[in-house]
Design a protein around this nucleic acid. Structure first.
Lengths: 184, 184
DNA sequence: GTCTATAGAATGATAGAC
DNA sequence: GTCTATCATTCTATAGAC
């Protein structure tokens, strides 16, 4: 999943993620990205052939941050421990990157890429399987959807915008444990 | 909040909401809306002077669907009953309109309008107050954010895309009651 | 890697006829 | 209410010089 990027590419992707978070993917033009980096559009096009390539690279970059936690969870024979591990990483990431979460989970353009690229599909599949095993009953489905949605939805919500990361994280984890019956 | 609209306006708003849900607000052009309705751009501009007016009207239209439930909740002296009332309506709406939820809650353009227009702010304030009273402790904040996020996030999630409305609603309500300690 | 300059299409919006 | 025609602007993307 993770790819090595040049410094120029990394700067572009960072600026793009930031702008995507503020204006959505469709609401962000290459001109805006170029301005944010401090170069011209042509310089951006030198690094990425199309806007779509930037969107895909940004998505890859963010998913890759879950990779090591996912591998650790897959290697962990104790399912409860594996869930614990993944959950903590996901919550950490969601809290740290609050402003970015809504783009990655809910932007229509990103959603289409996630649904359309096999690489992304397989990664998400691994994530869900590591968390829930092969239990695909309706209860598990709804619970997973709620858990995933609750984390994303909660960190985005304006009501918690003023809470510091540590407060938000600890409260989140408490409520989540209640939700999925993990031991406190 | 609710406004009376001509038939032509109603058709435009319905088409716009549908397209917004699929492509986001920024990803939807007036040409696309006009094509969906089956008229030209000029005909659309006759009903709404700007694209922004359409976005605001769509948002109003959807918020207005909560209005009677909100009034009923405000009139209810028993707080638990009031919460019950609102919760049921919100969940019903979220499940019925799954495809639209993400736009209304997470689209950057809509969010900016919600934050910038006093009419919207007051309405949302009333909603929160009817549900949580004047309790503004951190616990309540996070709980409300999670509840709101969990409902929106859950109904949007691809994992539950194949569940019928009734199944999704009943499961959702069960988990939510556990989350907020309402009696079953 | 970065620039200037530009092509070609799409965007939001308007004028004026029917 | 709807149309055709058009305007100014912005969009993605490319060519070619430094």
């Amino acid at each position: 999943m993770s790819k090595s990027r040049s410094a120029a590419q990394t700067r572009i992707l960072a600026a793009a993620l930031d702008l995507f978070a503020a204006h959505g993917v469709s609401g962000t033009s290459l001109q805006m990205i170029a301005d944010a980096v401090g170069v011209t559009k042509a310089a951006v096009y030198r690094q990425f052939k199309t806007k779509d390539e930037i969107v895909i690279a940004v998505t890859e970059m963010q998913l890759a941050r879950l990779e090591d936690a996912l591998e650790a969870a897959e290697a962990e024979p104790n399912r409860t421990r594996a869930r614990e591990l993944l959950l903590n990483r996901v919550v950490d990431m969601a809290v740290e990157q609050r402003r970015m979460v809504s783009v990655l989970q809910f932007d229509p353009v990103i959603i289409q890429f996630l649904a359309g690229h096999k690489t992304f599909q397989r990664f998400i599949d691994r994530l869900l399987r590591a968390f829930f095993g092969d239990n695909t009953g309706t209860d598990s489905l709804v619970q997973t959807a709620m858990l995933s949605g609750a984390i994303s939805g909660a960190v985005i919500h304006p009501l918690v915008a003023n809470l510091d990361d540590e407060t938000l994280r600890s409260h989140l984890l408490l409520v989540i444990r209640r939700l999925i019956n993990l031991p406190d």
